[in-house]
Structure formats: structure tokens, C-alpha cells
Computed example of a mutant assay.
Amino acid sequence: MEAIRNTGNQLVAALDKNDSVGVLDRYFPQTDFFVEFERFDRHLDKLKRAGTPVEMISICSPNYLHDAHIRFGLRYGADVICEKPLVLNPWNVDALAEQEAEKGQKVYNILQLRLHPSILALREKINSAASEQPADIELTYITSRGHWYYASWKGETAKSGGIATNIGIHFFDMLIWLFGAVQHNVVHVHTHDRAAGFLELERARVRWFLSINPETLPEIVREKGQRTYRHLAIDGDAVEFSDGFTDLHTKSYEAILAGKGFGIDAARPAIQVVHDIRHQETVGLKGDYHPLAALPLGRHPFRL
């Protein structure tokens, strides 16, 4: 909503089955709001028949509904902006590409890390370097979640895609964008609250660790009362990108409105990676694994 407002646009109508949306008052109090899809569909159809169709539909729904909601937007005749992940499976990407071509509309994915100033500077540095040696990378992302997570759709792998998809897809997209296509993919640990593995890219070797369990946070982070930890190191040197996230959605919308957004093909490689991670057998602590992969596994709070 902030990105829509910051780019000088209007939120004409909104659909959310939950009606606790007082946040609309902060941005677009005049937005027509619906909790039932059928009434939302009818309203948009009436706008089209009145000669004032919605031009763009923004999708921020649960991951497993993205595919259906994108298809709805294309059938309506609008361009579509969708949060990550665009879809959960690679074959869904192919089907959407066909529909996009048939309808003559565009589908854009929010890949905001590609617009982060530190990541842009890093990409320029990588592309100008003459080294033929692959970079050694360590990626750690821990974002603490409470017990609510497991009662929500996010805790159901069939709906969220699991840890690697739900919290990791932006980072995988960023790494592929920086260092090239995936050559080899190994998963060491994959449970309800964490995942860890190794990716060999064209120009990098990546050890990665993702977690929603606060007990996996470094002690110094916990002592400060912080619940999120991002760390990216290339050949032992840390890349600082903790700041600069606040306006990335606005930058994403600006790029889309200027015809420079990231489309279906841009989203495809990371979707393939997280799909493969989700369906691969774990190998355990073998080979080149992230050091945090060796931490004791956490108990599922909803399982006895």
C-alpha cells in the first residue's frame, strides 16, 4: 500500500478474507473492500463495464494462492504484480507464461534484493572482476517466528513451500543473479524450523542456512534482544546489507511502472532451486556444510 501511494497511484479495491484491515485508513480509506471473492470479482467487472477498469492487480495472498490469483488478474485484463514466491512449482511458471502471452498482459514478481544499493554495488564489482576462481560464500538468514507460525498456512509445506521457499527465495534469487546458474544443489538439513545446504553456482560455492527458530541466533544477537540476523560473507569478507530495506517495495513499483520490472523468466531460476530443495533427500552433515547446520534440531511445538 505504501508503494502504491508513493508512486502516486490509487488502490481502487481490495480483497482479504480477514476483515481486520484498519491499516487501509492510513493509506486509502476510500478503497472499496471485500471479504468474498465473488463480490470482489463482480465489482471489478462493473468497473470494466463502466469504462474505468483496474489497470494493475497486486497480489499479497498466501503463497499457494498466487497462481490462481495471477490467472484471475490476467483473465480480467490487468497487469499483475505478485509478491514472492511467484508460484510454488516450475511447471506453474510455464503455464503462466502461456497465459501471459495469450492475454497480452504482464506478470511482475517483487525481487527487491536486486534493487538494494549494496547488492547493486556488489554485482558491479563482481562483473568487473577478472578472477576465474569461484567465490566462497556463506549465507545465514534467521528470522524468529513464534508458535503462531505452525498454526498458520506458513507452517504447511504444501501451502508455503517450506522454509527455503517462504523465507529464502529472495536470497537464492539474489545469489543466482550475482553469480550465475545453479550447477549442483545439496541439502544437508531440512526440518520444520530450518534448512541448510550447499549450492554450486557458475561463479560461486555457497553454504547456506535458513531458520525461524530463535535458538539458532548467535548469542551476541540474542543478548541484544534482536530476533533477526542476516549475514553474507564472500571469501571471508562480510557484505553489509542490513539497512536499505525500507523503500525497496517503492523502488520495485517504480521500476514496474517504468516498464523495467522483473517478469516471469526472472523469477524462474529461484523457483526451480527451492522446488528442488523441497523435494531432495537430505544428506546429513557430509561434505561442505554450513557450521550452523550442526546445531541441535528443534522440537516441533505442535507435535508431541
Rank of each mutant, 00 (worst) to 15 (best):
M1Y: 10
A14L: 09
A14N: 06
D16T: 07
N18D: 07
D19I: 07
S20R: 14
G22F: 05
G22C: 09
L24M: 12
D25A: 13
D25Q: 15
Y27S: 02
T31P: 01
T31R: 01
F33A: 05
F33E: 02
E36F: 12
E36W: 08
F37Q: 09
R39D: 09
R39N: 11
F40N: 08
D45R: 14
L47P: 01
R49W: 04
M56V: 14
S58W: 08
S58E: 09
S61P: 13
N63L: 06
Y64E: 09
L65Y: 11
H66E: 10
H66A: 08
H66Q: 08
D67P: 04
D67S: 11
D67M: 13
A68D: 12
I70F: 01
F72P: 00
R75N: 11
A78D: 07
I81Y: 06
V87S: 07
L88I: 01
V93H: 03
D94E: 12
L96I: 07
A97R: 14
E98Q: 14
Q99D: 14
Q99P: 04
Q99Y: 07
E102Q: 15
Q105W: 05
V107E: 02
V107F: 02
Y108E: 05
N109T: 14
Q112V: 12
Q112K: 15
Q112S: 11
P117C: 10
S118G: 08
I126D: 00
I126E: 00
A129D: 13
E132L: 13
E132D: 14
Y149T: 12
K154F: 07
K159Q: 13
S160K: 12
G161T: 03
G162C: 08
I163C: 11
T165K: 09
T165Q: 10
T165W: 05
G168E: 04
F172V: 02
W177E: 02
L178A: 05
F179T: 00
V182H: 00
N185R: 14
V186Y: 14
V187A: 13
V187L: 12
H190V: 03
D193P: 03
D193M: 09
R194L: 06
A195I: 09
R205K: 14
F209N: 10
S211L: 09
T216F: 13
P218D: 01
P218G: 02
I220D: 11
V221Q: 10
E223P: 09
E223Y: 11
Q226H: 15
T228N: 12
Y229N: 04
Y229S: 10
I234T: 00
I234P: 03
D235L: 06
G236Y: 00
G236V: 02
G236A: 01
F241H: 03
S242R: 15
G244R: 10
K251T: 12
S252G: 13
Y253C: 05
I256C: 03
L257K: 08
L257W: 06
G259L: 00
G261D: 00
A270L: 04
V273A: 07
R278W: 07
E281I: 04
T282D: 03
T282K: 03
V283K: 03
G284I: 02
G287F: 06
Y289A: 02
Y289V: 03
L292H: 12
A293M: 01
L295Q: 15
L295R: 15
R299C: 06
P301L: 07
F302C: 09
L304G: 13
